[in-house]
């Protein structure tokens, strides 16, 4: 099991002036696992992910991707991982095929753009320009780009925010399918349903700190054992209730 660890985060800290964005976060993500970071906006999810992606420097702590320290090997880590940023964007006037080709070159990979597009069901849009894609297609496309370098770890920052329910389900299916590639997948979300459906394990994060890490079902069972109450009329407990119980406030205001 220990050899399976791909993302290893140890006591990560990051402040912006007075504001403590990430306050001693530690967790591990294994090969073939989908690990979710569940929390409201401003909880420190994006900051944590962007430190792991080499986009920001941590003030303290260290993170390793497949044994490589992020702090001192940012370029190398970047070449090993796949990323989907929260505000994901590509060149408006390039076609999907051209964009995947460009990014393959940037990563020094010889991946075939057609293969990549086929894996996210966008093969028939290869000649379309990025600006003509719908929101759901854009999100799927960014996964195709994120896979050009056959990454060991994939970071998805709020992959379904702003999508309609149908596009969201399609995205879930796609992410679930990535599991079979053996990547470690880490996603952030503030949708408790997304975390329940998709994630093997969930870290509940609030105000820069992780308050609980476990399988969604385990977290819910633990809440039931504590005699927690549901906000739903049918009385079924969800991660929303877990979050409310642990932090004293709701996931989405």
């Amino acid at each position: 099991m220990a050899n399976d660890v791909v993302i290893d985060v140890r006591d990560l800290r990051k402040s912006y002036g007075e504001l403590v964005a990430v306050d001693g976060v530690s967790f591990q993500v294994h090969r073939g696992e989908i690990f979710g970071m569940l929390g409201p906006n401003g909880a420190g999810k994006t900051t944590t992910v962007e430190i792991l992606e080499g986009l920001r420097q941590a003030d303290g702590g260290e993170a390793f991707i497949d044994g490589v320290g992020v702090k001192k090997n940012r370029r190398r880590v970047k070449s090993m991982i796949g990323v989907q940023l929260q505000q994901n964007a590509f060149f408006d006037n390039l076609t999907l095929h051209e964009t995947v080709q460009l990014f393959a070159t940037l990563y020094g990979s010889d991946a075939s753009p057609d293969d990549m597009l086929a894996r996210v069901d966008l093969a028939e849009r290869a000649k379309s320009r990025y600006k003509h894609l719908s929101g759901g297609q854009r999100q799927r496309f960014s996964i195709a780009v994120a896979m050009v370098n056959e990454p060991v770890a994939m970071f998805l920052d709020e992959p379904t925010t702003g999508l309609d329910p149908q596009a969201r389900r399609r995205m879930w299916k796609l992410i679930d399918g990535l599991r079979s590639d053996g990547m470690a997948i880490m996603l952030t979300t503030h949708y408790m349903e997304e975390a329940e459906v998709l994630c093997d394990r969930v870290a509940v994060i609030d105000r820069g700190s992780i308050v609980a890490v476990d399988a969604p079902q385990t977290l819910i069972e633990q809440l039931a054992n504590r005699g927690g109450r549901s906000v739903r009329r049918d009385g079924a407990l969800t991660l929303e209730d877990v979050f409310l119980d642990l932090t004293g406030h709701h996931l989405v205001d």
Partner: peptide, 19 residues
Amino acid sequence: LRNQGVLKRLYATPIGPNH
């Protein structure tokens, strides 16, 4: 490009600013 976030996506690749 910076406002759209394209530059940030490029920053997430292993290239340097000089490229």
